[in-house]
Computed example of a mutant assay.
Amino acid sequence: MFPDNDIAARGQELERWLLTEFGPVLSGLPLSKLLGHPSPGAFRQAVRRHGAPVALFQQGGRKGWCAATKEVAFWIARTEAAAQALSTQTPPEKTP
């Protein structure tokens, strides 16, 4: 796994970019895509069935779920680090 400071640096980099692109709150299609779902409907269904990897909230008077951009950025950074750690592991040897 990556050191925590590498994950934090990547999280801050992603946060800056996401804040520029979307602002401090993510919702709708951007939120569903960033969390790996093909559509807002698929995202809603996944949340109902399994929950979400980040804290979600609803804004008064609006439909759908929202998440803090910062939390999504750091979740992506942790997910990238975990995926990279798995890809660098050597597979177990096959036994004859």
Score class of each variant (00 low, 15 high):
G64D: 10
Q58E: 12
H50E: 15
G60D: 15
R49P: 03
S32F: 13
P30V: 10
A46P: 08
G60Q: 14
K70Q: 14
P53C: 07
G60P: 04
G61N: 02
G41P: 06
S39L: 02
P30M: 05
S32Y: 10
W65Y: 12
W65D: 01
V47T: 09
R48N: 10
Q58A: 04
C66G: 00
S32Q: 04
V54G: 14
A42G: 09
G60E: 14
E71V: 10
L34K: 01
A42K: 07
G60L: 08
A68N: 08
A68K: 13
H37W: 10
L34C: 03
C66I: 02
L34R: 04
A67I: 00
A52F: 07
P53Q: 05
F43Q: 11
R49N: 15
G51S: 11
L35T: 02
R44E: 14
V72F: 00
R44K: 12
S39T: 06
A52W: 00
A68P: 06
G36N: 06
E71Y: 09
K70T: 15
P30E: 04
T69W: 02
P53A: 07
K33H: 14
H37S: 03
A42Q: 04
R44S: 09
V47N: 03
A67F: 06
T69A: 12
R62L: 11
V47Q: 06
G51I: 07
A55C: 01
R49S: 14
H37E: 09
P38N: 02
R49Y: 03
P38L: 07
E71M: 05
G61P: 11
G60Y: 14
L31E: 09
P53W: 02
Q59D: 07
L56C: 08
L56R: 06
L34P: 01
G64H: 13
W65S: 05
H50N: 15
A52Y: 07
P53N: 07
V72N: 00
Q45F: 13
A55N: 05
P38Y: 14
K70M: 07
L35E: 00
K70H: 13
A67W: 04
